[in-house]
Design a protein around this nucleic acid. Structure first.
Lengths: 112, 112
DNA sequence: TAATTACATTGCAATATTACGATTATTATT
DNA sequence: AATAATAATCGTAATATTGCAATGTAATTA
């Protein structure tokens, strides 16, 4: 029904899925990459860099902000966005927690 | 319009976003975790483990298989699924490629 | 061969996501 | 205060995703 049955899953599973959604769109990946590179914390010239409308970018930024992956601070008439490196580390270990499990269980060649 | 403008982004950005979608649903996370733990490559008793209908699980399995994250082999009347550890490593480094960029650029406290 | 078992596929309804034009704040400048 | 600049929000259309009942398919067993 297009509605995820969150109650069937653990808190961690739901959390990881929620975060993964942030990465599940190329525009948001692009935004994150731009913010990472220009650590000077750029604002809405994202509209120029990417070819999307202002409203669309703003929407993606909000999603990233709601998940805590980025922070935004008002800077004159514009808004300065940047990576929230603390959250970033959390997310990294959330993913690696899953990734590493396979590495652990596959040290021999017991996998198919 | 609900349609992603893939042509605006790089191949890598689209690829990472595509893979991230695999992780963007708790049922698929749960499935992957179960397959990781029971490296003996379990089949559709997933239906019992998770509380979803058989058709729903099958659909999630197909998505994971199409992305190459899991493999399935016919085993009598049932199907044995397991992690594709080769692809798994690729995915891990795809994500870490992004994650590490922040670590690199934030060694001092130049971030906001 | 008929019945059974285990999955995959199809078709559909409900909800979510993506995108953008238009409008509405908010702050800065004149 | 009026204007400009910048970005958030609203409303809406198009498409995607999630979930399941029903049906189809392939291998196994009686």
């Amino acid at each position: 029904m297009g509605v995820t049955k969150t109650d069937l899953f653990t808190k961690q599973q739901n959390e990881l899925a929620q975060i993964a959604k942030a990465f599940a769109h190329p525009a948001r990946i692009a935004i994150l990459e731009i913010l990472v590179e220009s650590k000077s914390c750029i604002n809405g010239n994202l509209v120029q860099e990417l070819g999307l409308a202002q409203a669309t970018i703003s929407q993606h930024l909000r999603e990233l902000k709601e998940l805590g992956l980025i922070k935004g601070s008002i800077e004159g008439t514009s808004v300065s966005y940047c990576i929230n490196s603390q959250k970033w580390e959390q997310v990294r270990s959330l993913f690696n927690g899953l990734f590493d499990q396979v590495a652990d269980s596959c040290d021999s060649d017991s996998c198919c």
